[in-house]
Design a protein around this nucleic acid. Structure first.
Lengths: 329, 329
DNA sequence: CGCGCCCGTGTAACCGGTTTCAACGATAGG
DNA sequence: CCTATCGTTGAAACCGGTTACACGGGCGCG
């Protein structure tokens, strides 16, 4: 007896009503007699009936699914962001599909195409630099989308994020305020990440800084820090555009036998959860990734439900002063 | 100005053929004249046509979507796992939806219900302890599912993962082999995580150990380590059931001014990417989370495409000997 | 030269819901 | 007591694909 999964018709037959009535009960329409509604609900429970999502999506033209495309899921900052997006969407009864792009435009395009063909109703994209084809594709399908991690009031597309340029400049000014003249910036790959470029440019707008690139992980931070330490005119502070890089830098300093902040100041970006536990605790730029994710998800859902247009939103970063930055000797 | 999104009918009209032919082209059926196929493909490209996923899912009863439910996305080990799952699914043209359960059974159940109602065709569940209602629900809907992070040959449900009990015992034996008599185990919350319970039991099966619980993050590891250090008969080795806890433990030791491994040995679990960069590099139990994710995804897709039954798979952990464990003084 | 077969294509029946509209009985108002 | 109205329900169209089946024309073969 291979019973089929159970359709609305089975429910209707069981209570001797039409499928229209069952559908009305499912959707909470008010023009159903209370007694009927109870009978139907009872049957639905008895049969463990769940409506076929494809059929529902077909007639309503809604899938209640939004997609995000991120460079990597293994990065804490994206994971944090995604967690917030998922939670917010779940609260509203939406589901989240995601794909990773590795920061490569073609992969991102392919991912969007796939997710579109999967029924995603809205997109949350990371960063700002995306091929024109991408936005054309999305526009053509009339699918709303936002860029995140970036705030750019001049962008034609709504951006929900930070002013990376300004934040980096602020961080540099902070370090200079502490007395640092020679600052080295440690950053991730520039070619696949427009935020990194914006931050570096921002830092340079505030003061001349040396820049060292490393992979966006602890090993990369360690290596970039080693390169910075090897400079003839050694810097007195390391400004890392990710806490992960900062952790690597701390390890490099430990290996080199340099104390923090005594012999070298270190500052991070992101304010990941563990930064307060470091010894010494890390001074870092707090970036409200969770709030950002929540806002992006909230706006997208609102747009989908009520049609209100998406609006850019800027989130401020704040410097969290802890123990890893001190005036140079 | 194109109003609607464009349906198969628009494509058919444009080339003066029937929708059946267009559909055949879309699905690569071989009984289409090459000339016709080219014309149709040309029209599809010109119109930027993408088939409506809901309609397709409705008639084929396939959504090409797999779901995972994990305790948290912010945890590196899950992020790593999810990354592998996503990559594997993407290669096969499948999409990944996910929801987080926080390790709470009701949240997990609600998430599964939602994902089912979203069209997920298969499930990858984390851990082994799930309410009977959950498996009943899935069985009833005839949706295949696997448990991961756990290998249990006796389970009725296919499990793809490690033998947590045996691995923990192996770790304890390793530390004893290094000469440690007093070992403290640092673990995450037991009530929401059956793997943690299995590991603790495994450790105890190999030798009597003291156990300290902390939240599954760096702060939790730090706090649990402090508790362990405060013991009257201080342990000589800290076995941490997560690298994240181990990092916290290292910070606690740094604060207490204890050297690793001179005054205290530390061992982790997971072999996260940064563990090799720690100073000293962390000795840890490598858990092939990526391989596990890949295998779970691969099997699920195969099951969905060809119907072959899911099979449990065991992945071995291996101890990566680095610098953080040494014989006690 | 005619028959049958196969190839390419179209017609129409589904898939399982939502929703419009009409019909029905009961009730209230004149 | 008759009729207008309301509340409840069902019939059927529709969403946009897939696919079984029918059909017509060209070709090989007898």
């Amino acid at each position: 007896m291979t019973r089929k999964v159970g359709t609305i018709r089975d429910v209707a037959d069981r209570v001797g009503l039409s499928i229209a009535t069952v559908s009305r009960v499912m959707n909470g329409a008010r023009n159903v007699a209370p007694a009927t509604r109870d009978k139907v609900l009872e049957a639905i429970r008895a049969l463990n009936y769940l409506p076929n999502p494809a059929a529902r999506a077909l007639s309503t033209a809604k899938s209640r699914t939004v997609a995000t495309v991120i460079p990597s899921i293994e990065h804490s900052i994206y994971a944090k962001f995604m967690g917030a997006v998922e939670r917010t969407l779940a609260e509203q009864g939406y589901s989240l599909v995601f794909a990773v792009s590795n920061g490569v435009a073609e992969q991102e395009h392919a991912a969007v195409q796939k997710l579109l063909g999967m029924g995603a109703e809205g997109f949350i994209l990371s960063g700002q630099a995306h091929g024109a084809e991408l936005t054309e594709l999305l526009d053509l399908r009339r699918v709303p989308y936002v860029f995140t991690s970036v705030y750019d009031p001049d962008s034609a597309v709504p951006t929900i994020g930070y002013d990376n340029h300004a934040l980096a400049a602020e961080a540099v000014r902070f370090l200079r305020g502490e007395g640092h003249e020679r600052i080295a910036v440690l950053h991730g790959p520039l070619d696949t990440n427009d935020r990194a470029r914006a931050r570096l440019a921002g830092a340079r707008s505030a003061a001349p800084v040396a820049a060292f690139e490393g992979a966006l992980d602890v090993a990369g931070g360690k290596q970039a820090a080693r390169a910075a330490l090897a400079e003839a005119n050694r810097p007195t502070a390391l400004l890392c555009f990710s806490d992960v890089l900062a952790l690597g830098a701390c390890f490099a300093l430990a290996e080199a036998g340099l104390s923090v902040p005594g012999e070298m100041s270190v500052m991070g970006f992101d304010n990941l959860d563990w930064t307060s536990e470091l010894v010494p605790p890390l001074t870092t730029m707090n970036l409200p990734a969770r709030k950002m994710g929540q806002e992006a998800a909230r706006q997208l859902v609102e747009r989908l439900e009520t049609g209100v247009p998406l609006a850019s939103a800027r989130f401020d970063g704040t410097i969290i002063t802890r123990g890893s930055v001190a005036p140079p000797r």
